[in-house]
Computed example of a mutant assay.
Amino acid sequence: MSATARKSAPLPDDIRARKGGTPIVSLTAYTTPMAELMDGICDFVLVGDSVGMVLHGLQSTLGVTMEMMILHGQAVRRGLKASMLVMDMPFGSYEESPQQACRNAARIMAETAAGAVKLEGGVAMADTIAFLVARGIPVMAHIGLTPQSINTLGGYRVQGRGAEAEALLADARAVTQAGAFAVVLEKVPETLANRITSEVTIPTIGIGASSGCDGQILVVDDMLGLFTAFKPKFVKRYAHLGEAARAAIQDYANEVHDRRFPGPEHVFADKAPVKTGPAKTTPEQTA
């Protein structure tokens, strides 16, 4: 069934079943209007903690709070009918213990009606993933470049080159064994991404990885050209809406300066015109 023909959102098990099949399509969204545009086209829509940088002007994702995630998750939920909603767990909401992760994941899912949560980490987070899954919380894993760990990873650099490859393979195996239904591979060398995809039994979702992954995800504001503070190599611009929007704003400003806007069609008369019908005639007038 095509995405546009789908009438109900897929479940995590439906995503898992796509392993090795038709590639999985996904994007981020942070608002209702954007979610409505991608509903039914994307298999799942992620409310990413990238919202902190894209919409709130933060320098990293580390300042994103539970409240911010839930607010944007509720907005996206209102725009989705045929795509699954996945929610990022923000920094500090799950690392302390499996119990902390469970409390916060349960809150996120209850308040956004999400189908799953996503958290960063491989071997180190395997016990937490297993704890959540055993309690009915579907988990999408995220390994490779994990933006919440940039202070320990040395910035936004490619992960898994050279000797790091075996560690990343171990991460992929660990999240698979823990019960994650899919795993995001971010900024991973193509050959390694292909190897992970062939070895694990759950779908891999690439972002800066390989076309051989089981699916792909991008930040929607990146691919539409709305967020232009920087452009990672793995982003393809499918539109340049930011440039178009700035040009439109400049046109508006020019018309305001020239008093061409608002025009007659955009303003209201002091008094609505009185509607008149055909003049009435008397019998004498028709004689």
Rank of each mutant, 00 (worst) to 15 (best):
R78H: 09
R161T: 08
I108A: 00
V158H: 13
M84W: 02
A180W: 06
L85F: 04
G115P: 05
L62P: 10
A126M: 06
G92F: 08
D127R: 15
L153A: 11
T146L: 11
D171C: 00
G179S: 15
A113H: 15
E120W: 06
V183D: 07
L153W: 03
G63W: 12
A130F: 06
F131W: 15
Y156C: 12
R161Q: 14
T146C: 13
V175I: 08
C102F: 13
M89T: 11
V64C: 12
G63P: 05
T176R: 11
G79T: 07
G52T: 03
A101S: 14
E120I: 02
Q177I: 06
G121Q: 00
E95P: 08
L169R: 12
I143P: 07
G136C: 01
H72V: 02
A82P: 03
S83I: 00
Q59L: 06
A82N: 10
T65P: 11
A172S: 06
R157W: 13
V175M: 12
A180Q: 01
A130W: 05
F91S: 03
E95W: 14
T176C: 09
E120M: 04
A106K: 15
S93P: 10
I137W: 08
A110L: 09
G154K: 10
A116L: 02
A134H: 05
S93N: 02
S60M: 05
I108G: 06
I150T: 13
V183T: 15
T61E: 03
V133P: 11
L169H: 03
D88H: 14
H56Q: 15
P90T: 08
T128E: 00
C102A: 14
V51L: 14
M66R: 09
H56L: 15
E186M: 00
A180S: 00
L119Y: 10
A170S: 11
N104H: 10
G92P: 11
A110G: 04
R77D: 01
I143L: 07
V158W: 13
A114C: 01
E164C: 04
A105W: 08
A114Q: 02
M140Q: 11
G136M: 04
I143D: 13
I137D: 05
Y94K: 09
R135K: 09
